[in-house]
Design a binder for these strands. Structure first.
Length: 358
DNA sequence: CATCGGGTAGCGTTTACCTCA
DNA sequence: AATGAGGTAAACGCTACCCGA
């Protein structure tokens, strides 16, 4: 049997970790390639190793579970059921980058936890769903449910009769052909939309949390427990996987959107800084092109005089120099040299003395 | 050893039905 | 009561993989 959810086409695999950016508390690493492992649903948070983080999205009704390390999943009893399974599929060392718990935080209606005697719901379940995940060895696997066929509401159509009369054979591993009959079977009954009961759905959800794919043995067992056709169980799991994937895609889109916004903002900021640096460079090169100013001081009256370019320098220094100073402060470095003569009389004086001495 | 056909199972898409606002 | 939207069971087609001839 092929490995479930082992996508053959390259797809984005997300590796989440914490990001220093507060706006985006996680960092997305994207790699192209086969997803190493199907999504698995963690069983109990206390069993999760420390590096695991749970990103809860109450508004979306699910949480992202980031698991590092061997996923805590159910039994490996199906190994002997998959003779064709490759070895790398069964070692379990490849961890899913993201584990999504797509169940609503209160997955099972309150009324379901009590009224059904014998329904093996975890007693520790609470409203937050923190402990909603039953252990893999919960009683769910050994409970023979007495649910009625095809939901609760008057939907027991001719289909049930067909099954009971053997018209619809047990759709086992080789029963797909029979299950793919046309909408109108030989009894003339049109395909009726059946609705699984809440109990059946809840039980299937529990099973899905343990393993999102079924081997034939599990499928048959589930079908027997829920009084459903194996084909129905199979279809339910297919649709459930599709829903999981859809939600996963939504999560991916949401996160990539946030990443895009963050990167756009960062890009804007860097562009602005680049513009400032370019302006600074222009101003700097302007100064460098100016001829050196030689200041001289009259020893008698102590008046400072300069060469011909000094007036220009002074003009630039008093006007443009201010902005330059501001930029240099922001940029974290100071512009060295060529100050205005009025700002630096003593250095000018020193220079004049040196020049006059020579 | 390579090829081919049958069988099996999963996925994507679509359809049809049901529920609910 | 009619209706449209959303959810979902089921069907269909396709593909990948395995296995035996």
């Amino acid at each position: 049997m092929r490995k479930p959810l082992h996508f053959r086409t390259p797809r984005l695999v997300h590796f989440l970790s914490f990001c220093p950016c507060a706006a985006a508390p996680m960092e997305l690493g994207l790699s192209l390639g086969d997803a190493p492992k199907p999504f698995r649903f963690v069983e109990k948070q206390p069993q999760v190793p420390p590096p695991q983080r749970v990103l809860s999205r109450p508004d979306l009704g699910f949480c992202v579970d980031l698991s590092i390390g061997r996923p805590v999943v159910g039994e490996k009893e199906d190994d002997e059921e998959k003779p064709n399974q490759r070895e790398d599929e069964s070692d379990g060392n490849e961890d899913p980058p993201i584990q999504l718990d797509l169940l609503p935080h209160n997955p099972v209606p309150r009324h379901l936890t009590n009224p059904y005697q014998g329904f093996p719901w975890p007693s520790s379940e609470n409203d937050e769903g923190e402990d909603r995940t039953a252990s893999p060895n919960s009683a769910a696997s050994s409970f023979q449910m007495e649910f009625g066929l095809y939901g609760g509401g008057g939907n027991i159509s001719c289909r049930r009769d067909q099954i009971e009369n053997g018209v619809m054979n047990e759709v086992g591993e080789s029963g797909r052909a029979s299950s793919r009959a046309s909408d109108e079977d030989e009894n003339g009954c049109t395909r009726k939309k059946l609705r699984l009961s809440k109990e059946q759905s809840a039980f299937l959800e529990e099973s899905f949390k343990e393993h999102n794919t079924l081997n034939p043995k599990q499928k048959l067992a589930l079908a027997k427990q829920l009084n459903l056709l194996p084909r129905q169980v199979e279809v339910w799991f297919q649709n459930r996987r599709a829903r999981t994937k859809l939600k996963q895609t939504e999560v991916d889109c949401e996160y990539l959107k946030r990443c895009c916004e963050t990167l756009t903002e960062e890009n804007r900021r860097l562009q602005k800084e680049l513009q400032e640096l370019r302006a600074l460079k222009t101003t700097n090169s302007f100064y460098m092109q100016l001829p050196a100013t030689t200041l001289t001081m009259c020893p008698s009256c102590e008046r400072v005089t300069s060469t011909s370019a000094a007036s220009t320098v002074a003009a630039v220094a008093t006007s443009g120099g201010k902005s330059t100073e501001g930029v240099s402060k922001r940029s974290g470095f100071a512009i060295a040299g060529r100050p205005s003569s009025s700002s630096f009389p003593f250095s000018a004086k020193t220079q004049s003395h040196q020049s006059t001495a020579s």
